[in-house]
């Protein structure tokens, strides 16, 4: 897809989402249209993104977390299989007590992805149906993908 076309689509999206979320904040720069949301307003924003006609972001294809040492950023990648547009949603979480509402009821794939993020980052997904460790054993201490995680036995530093 040509860059201009992408930009035009992105601007169109911004306008559309702006109609529903007047306080929407946008991150400048990256290739995707990126919406910034507060964890508190995320449940409503998620519903809007999923169910608003014209937006219809029905496909959550990537969900991850980034440890910025001072805070966490949740990153959601969305696509609409209906309209073909894509959107990234980012949400800043507190470093000491990262918590955000689950979206596993809206996009069911999130159930596993959120368990993964919980397992590796320790993000607490509120009201998640089954928030347990996914890859690591239940008695594992710590969250390996955090930047401050140290494991003298299992981790090889290059």
């Amino acid at each position: 897809m040509a860059d201009e076309e992408m930009n035009a689509k992105g601007e169109g999206l911004k306008v559309k989402i702006g109609e529903w979320l007047p306080l929407a904040q946008w991150e400048e720069g990256p290739e995707w249209t990126t919406l910034l949301v507060e964890p508190a307003s995320w449940p409503e924003a998620a519903k809007l993104l999923r169910f608003t006609p014209g937006l219809d972001f029905d496909f959550l294809f990537c969900l991850t977390c980034i440890d910025w040492k001072t805070h966490f950023t949740m990153v959601y990648h969305f696509r609409s299989t209906l309209h073909g547009h894509e959107l990234v949603v980012k949400s800043k979480l507190d470093h000491n007590q990262p918590a955000i509402e689950t979206v596993s009821r809206i996009w069911r794939t999130a159930e596993f992805h959120e368990r993964e993020a919980y397992d590796l980052f320790g993000v607490n997904f509120l009201h998640h149906p089954d928030l347990r460790r996914l890859f690591l054993t239940d008695e594992w201490v710590g969250y390996p993908l955090r930047k401050d995680y140290e494991d003298p036995v299992n981790m090889i530093k290059l």
């Binding site: 990537c62 440890d67 990153v75 990648h77 794939t109 596993f112 992805h113």
Partner: peptide
């Protein structure tokens, strides 16, 4: 890289298995 995330197809496909 500061962080890398791999979105693997099998992971999401597996989540539908129970259903």
């Amino acid at each position: 890289p500061y962080r890398i995330k791999f979105r693997s197809p099998g992971f999401s496909n597996l989540s539908a298995l129970n259903h």
